[in-house]
Amino acid sequence: MSAILNPVVVLGGLGLLFGVLLSIASKVFAVYVDPKVEEILNALPGANCGACGFPGCAGLAGALADGKAPTNACTIGGQKVANHVAEILGVNAATFDKKVAVVLCQGDCDKAKDKYKYHGIKDCRIQTTLAGGQKECSYGCVGCGSCFDVCEFNAIRMINGIAVVNAENCTACNKCVEICPKNIIELVPYESHAVVKCMSKDPGKLVRSYCSVGCIGCQICVKNCPTDAFSFENNLARINYDKCINCMVCVEKCPTNAIDNTSIISEEFAKRFAS
């Protein structure tokens, strides 16, 4: 009998002893945790993408509870999460201006010339190290799809040699912006549809020689814009999205169609995202 009883008593007794000691210790070392932190953490998407600039969702939850972050800090959660967080904190929700990533290049295989054929590892960062990539334009999308690989939200497709972002899937997590070696992916407001899709700082004549949809620096958009939303620098037109009213005058006037209306979706685009 004691052969069974002894181990049970010894093990049970020790377990009980340590349990009691630990419960005393937990009272002595009790740390007050704001219950709001837990609640906010549950309201956040939990993707731990880091787009808010805090170390993961837990980091943002802590900052939100301390009032150190705006309620719309979570870029992928959108207005819904902002409202929910504001509700928990008992403050008014900040309006959430949704942004989406846009690839500022339209020079696909038909429109832009190549200077050589790249047959290496399928990674834009590697291709760029070889004389700046296979495209003759040293500013354009090299089309190896590093942004596609890094996108966790299924928002990027490679269509005819360039990356295209689907605004509906994009959560503005900034990952593609960071990985692009050409720095041609930009976050623009979701509501702004006129975008200068070119980053070439080359003079117009040179741009014309290698790409049919590049910005040639004619400044027609600058002259025609009713709200002075355009700025012109280094042979390249840029739109100030705060001033843009989506009148689409620039899109119509642009002689090379370098300014694109992002709300118009091509058949190829729709097909690729449907599949």
């Binding site: 093990l11 630990l22 210790a25």
Partner: peptide
């Protein structure tokens, strides 16, 4: 059992 309890204690502390 001893080690686990001690680790728990260190964690709390």
């Amino acid at each position: 059992l001893v080690i686990a309890s001690l680790v728990q204690f260190v964690e709390l502390a």
